[in-house]
Nucleic acid binder design. Structure first.
Lengths: 187, 187
DNA sequence: TGAGGGGACTTGACGTTGTCAAGTGGTGAC
DNA sequence: GTCACCACTTGACAACGTCAAGTCCCCTCA
């Protein structure tokens, strides 16, 4: 059960959340996982490759959370989706940051792309009830709002301590849902 | 006029935009600026200190752009603000990313804090016509939307190539302004 | 039973990095 | 004319990412 790759990824996750992105060195995670200094190179090829694997894991987890939203509960699903997205960002701020730092990742990695696609599908399925291209501006709007809220709150931009941000976040999500339904009813 | 600190910051900016965050090494920017390998240490103390200086510069520039919005043009100012924020993010994606990566910066640096405060003031001044605490949820909502849009577009999450994102972004901002005015008129 | 091959690492070495202590040169004050 | 200060440089060190080569162990096929 203790497979090297998994242990290394877990070590990297821990290092990321405890000490920030700069602390995830290949040798540091190897030490933490109890493997030799070159083991990460064997599994991930590269430092960027290792970050890519970490980001992939992040997208997979995010998808899992988003997919628990029931597509049928029409009025509340938008808010539910936003709440889950933001909750993810508040629980793993550094990971969300990494997931969207294109220049540090191998953006053409097929696993990464698949995981990204799954997360985006989870969003569009609920919001658009489909997968239209180009997406409805309102879908992108909801995604951008959730994403911005998640990153701002997670980095402590809204409140000095990220943990205090939840009331603000909830108020914003509620206001957004309110604004959306009002504008829709007036059509 | 060629002061060391300024040259180093310029070199760091160039390295960041050309090769991404991972490429801004202390020695690399020293080489690029034509100084000795330890010069960055003298000016910035730390690697994190150097990133902090870079982020500070970013916030100052962002403030400058946001402050050109005229506070009086009531209906359009919200959209104008969002457009400038997103434009900044599209022009300097890696910099915006860095500015909000708390774990890589010295977040208690007074210069950084002042620059952050100035940027946030520029936002709240236009949106709230003041500096209320806690801020109006709608203010935070507009900020989060602009921020999310800027980071998603800048990292190529909306379109494969970040440069193609502008039409999408414009559509979203227009839709947001529309939604906001509709919901306000129905009060 | 024994040879062969492959996966999962380790060992060792290389050049490069961040950081620090100590030095150097030039400018202005007294 | 010396003294102090500023803006760096020089040199050293441990730690880092990357690569080539080696080791161990399990599985397969004869």
């Amino acid at each position: 059960m203790p497979d090297g790759r998994g242990q290394l990824l877990a070590a990297a996750r821990a290092e990321l959340e405890e000490n920030g992105r700069a602390a995830i060195g290949l040798r540091a995670i190897a030490r933490r996982a109890g493997l030799s200094h070159a083991a990460p190179g064997y599994f991930f090829k590269d430092h960027a490759g290792m970050l890519t694997a970490l980001a992939t894991e992040g997208f997979t987890e995010l998808s899992g959370e988003l997919e628990t939203v029931d597509e049928r509960e029409a009025p509340a699903r938008l808010e539910a989706l936003g709440r889950r997205y933001v909750h993810f960002g508040l629980s793993h701020p550094a990971l969300l940051d990494l997931m969207f730092s294109a220049s540090d990742l191998h953006t053409d990695d097929p696993d990464l792309r698949a995981a990204q696609h799954r997360a985006i599908s989870a969003l569009t399925r609920v919001l658009d009830a489909g997968d239209p291209a180009p997406p409805d501006p309102r879908t992108v709007m909801a995604w951008a709002l959730a994403h911005g809220l998640a990153t701002l709150a997670g980095q402590g931009a809204l409140t000095p301590n990220p943990n205090d941000a939840k009331p603000t976040v909830d108020a914003v999500l509620a206001a957004f849902a309110d604004v959306m339904t009002r504008s829709a009813s007036g059509t």
